[in-house]
Design a binder for these strands. Sequence first.
DNA 1: TACGATTGTGAGTGATCACTTACTTCTCTG
DNA 2: CAGAGAAGTAAGTGATCACTCACAATCGTA
Lengths: 175, 175
Amino acid sequence: MTEKKEKILIAALELFAQEGFKSTSTSKVAKKAGVSEGLIFRHFENKEGLLEAIIKEGEERAKILFGDIVFEPEPKAVLKKTLELGSKMIENKEDADFWKLQYKMKWELEFYGEHKMEPLELALTNAFTKLGHDRPELEARVLLVNMDGLATRYFLQKDFDLGVMIDYMKTKYGV
Amino acid sequence: MTEKKEKILIAALELFAQEGFKSTSTSKVAKKAGVSEGLIFRHFENKEGLLEAIIKEGEERAKILFGDIVFEPEPKAVLKKTLELGSKMIENKEDADFWKLQYKMKWELEFYGEHKMEPLELALTNAFTKLGHDRPELEARVLLVNMDGLATRYFLQKDFDLGVMIDYMKTKYGV
DNA sequence: TACGATTGTGAGTGATCACTTACTTCTCTG
DNA sequence: CAGAGAAGTAAGTGATCACTCACAATCGTA
């Protein structure tokens, strides 16, 4: 990975997360990265290839984040860690940009990457089962739907206080 | 409102909801509506003016939907009707397109129309107060965040069963 | 029916899009 | 240090973009 290739990836992540994929021109990415436009197409097959490279890099982040939850044996700790995912996703600028891009792409490409969430959903279902819930699979889905709602609000509503909401939900779930 | 102007609005709503605002060209709208591209700019100042006209028309829908909840005196009925909003939003194709467009625009333009939700949030806070909740304003926000999550899933996840989720949440809230 | 206003068309406009090409500069290795 | 391959550039390419303009058809009304 050369220095300029890295600059292209970082500039593209930031711009795609801010303005969307289709609305960001390759010339804009090149300008922001401080390279010639042609270089983008030397390193990536096309504009979509650039997006794929960003997503692929980010999926490593997701594996680390989710892994910590999936292998947690204590059911209450599973709930706690899931709720705290929200804070972890935005701990630094590049992470926040990546997760924002993930949500943005869902709407731009109309594709919900449900398979990515499957292990998390299973871990939550398992946790709710252990905690004696009547409909653990629905309870798990409610929690995940809630997380989607929290992400929507956090990324789009300037004054939304994510911390307060997560704390409140923790007390609701008793964790 | 001439017949062709109406056709432009309907075609644009469908295309904007499907492919997004920026990614839909005016020539595509004209083709779908069966009119010349120039006519779009005779009836609307520019492409954004066309979008504004669609949003404005749709806001009447929102007022009707929300009004029924805001003026409901019985607190449990407020919760019930709020949860049932989800089903009402997608009762017919044009309504579903409009609400999908609303969510899509939030992400495309990065602007959460929080003021639109204010009366609903107040009504919910009031309902949770009457029902004796400790933190009614947070409880109201949790419910609205959940609705955002449900919308995200319904519009983006093909196999998402909205009815089951709404029914389950109704039992959770005891309504 | 005459005529002004509105509605509608189709062929433009320059700007910008993703991407290519011809070329130069750097870097690494035998 | 020669030379090959990788990295990088600048100036293009045709296609498509939002939008305009000159003109024609249609309409409401006096």
